[in-house]
Design a protein around this nucleic acid. Structure first.
Length: 453
DNA sequence: TGGGGTTAT
DNA sequence: ATAACCC
């Protein structure tokens, strides 16, 4: 395909190439996936749990468990009853409060960002890193006679033979070395183990990271791409094809990855829309040009609680106050301010699998200003707003039965970017008195303290 | 199925 | 505001 790639492929003198990342579309991506993350965090918190079968419980579910427990038959998302039956010695810890998991999760992302700033989070326990530039720099440091001494770190998918005359192989091997350094750093600095997959795009990196499973890594060389994607037993195993799309494809008689590869593009586009159809059909060939997008700080903060039954307004208000109190702490830490608040509910016969309803509204500016100060009561006005949203969704004069409440702060804005001026800054106690520790502290773009004696 | 997250429509 | 996707 790409002439630049073909030209580079047989070139023995890597250092003579100019603009290596611009004239080639070949990327090196790593997917880093922590082993049973919540269980690992719990074992670090309490080392006595280390050699015992451990499960992390949320409500009546074991959401994850360590490998001791897995050996004894416990699976992720298993009912507590079933898990105890399978494994009576199972130790359970409650994992409904995500605070420590979230904090550790961001420590991992920040550690990876030290290698290369382009890090995309996927959930709390997975990260993608684009290593293309880093690999290119290391290649340029190598003398041409050192190329023949480059070695792989970890497994090579499908036991494929390495060709050291193939520059793409060399790049991926250097990627595997960086992946090993990342896993070493995660273990040495944070005490965490995990898997890594190195490949030429996000899809393949993610698929290959799971091939050797706990605490190992695998690199995929281009010649084994089809082997990997065709090794999947069902289209639903392709990240990007979820429950709904899989059902839709099954209705068309598409069950295997090969079925999807060979299915009529025209018909698929008519059924799923051109965008989704073209995207997933490319995925079925292992093609994925989506970039690694730096996640940066979160776009939203939310807290939720599920329960068997909530059927009165007072009950709902109490739950909302609990959720809100935790959220206000988190928002205070972040340093930015949310400009929108949302309330989410789930009603009892949750007809749909994901039957949630929500109402949102802007947060009044006088309330925004009080956020993060701790000096003023922000609970009262926020609860008032949330209860109005609640009554907008739920007719409290009629019987109701809710099984979930969630509060979300979103539309986060840095405090000083445009509208806030100098006078405003000096008149707002929160900004001069609140400690904004951490890397998310706002920057004074147009304002400098030196300007004001 | 929990308690989170994201983007597209 | 919802619906899809991810963990």
């Amino acid at each position: 395909g790409n002439p630049a790639v073909v030209g580079a492929k047989n070139s023995p003198r890597v250092r003579d190439q100019v603009l290596p990342t611009r004239n080639s579309s070949f990327r090196v991506i790593v997917h880093v996936d922590l082993d049973c993350f919540y269980a690992q965090v719990e074992m670090i918190s309490n080392p006595e749990l280390k050699d015992k079968p451990l499960g992390v419980q949320q409500k009546y579910l074991v959401v994850t468990c360590n490998y001791e427990a897995r050996k004894l038959g416990v699976k992720k998302l298993m009912n507590v009853r079933d898990a105890k039956e399978k494994c009576p010695q199972l130790v359970l810890v409650n994992g409904e409060d995500l605070t420590r998991y979230r904090e550790m999760s961001y420590k991992v992302t920040e550690l990876l960002e030290e290698f290369s700033p382009v890090v995309e989070r996927l959930g709390f326990d997975e990260n993608f890193v684009d290593l293309t530039e880093m690999v290119e720099k290391r290649l340029q440091q190598l003398q041409s006679d050192e190329l023949s001494a480059v070695t792989v770190s970890g497994h090579v998918y499908n036991n494929q033979s390495i060709n050291l005359h193939d520059i793409l192989h060399i790049r991926l091997l250097i990627g595997s070395q960086i992946a090993a350094e990342m896993r070493e750093a995660m273990y040495n600095h944070l005490g965490l183990t995990g898997c890594a997959g190195v490949a030429s795009n996000k899809l393949l990196a993610k698929l290959v990271s799971g091939v050797f499973k706990p605490n190992q890594q695998t690199v995929l060389l281009p010649e084994s791409c089809q082997h990997l994607i065709l090794s999947l037993n069902h289209i639903k195993e392709i990240p990007g094809i979820g429950y709904k799309t899989a059902k839709c494809l099954e209705a068309l008689g598409i069950n295997s990855v090969h079925d999807l590869q060979t299915f009529s593009s025209k018909i698929l586009e008519k059924e799923l829309g051109i965008s989704l159809a073209q995207r997933i059909q490319k995925l079925s060939f292992g093609e994925d040009n989506s970039p690694v997008i730096p996640s940066g700080p979160p776009q939203s903060f939310s807290e939720e609680d599920s329960f068997k039954k909530c059927s009165s307004e007072v009950e709902a208000k109490n739950k909302i106050e609990e959720l809100l109190a935790s959220l206000l702490n988190r928002v205070c830490q972040d340093g930015r301010k949310p400009h929108t608040v949302r309330l989410i509910i789930r009603r009892y016969p949750s007809e749909k699998h994901c039957g949630r309803e929500s109402r949102q509204c802007p947060i009044p500016s006088h309330v925004i200003q009080k956020l993060g100060t701790g000096n003023y009561d922000v609970m009262t006005p926020m609860v008032d707003i949330l209860m109005k949203l609640f009554r907008n969704m739920v007719n409290v004069k009629m019987p109701f039965h809710l099984t979930l409440l969630s509060v979300c702060f979103c539309n986060l804005k840095a405090v000083n970017t445009a509208k806030r001026g100098l006078i405003d800054y000096y008149l707002t106690p929160s900004l001069s008195t609140t400690s904004c520790s951490g890397k998310h502290s706002f920057k004074m773009k147009d304002t400098h303290m030196e300007d004001f004696p």
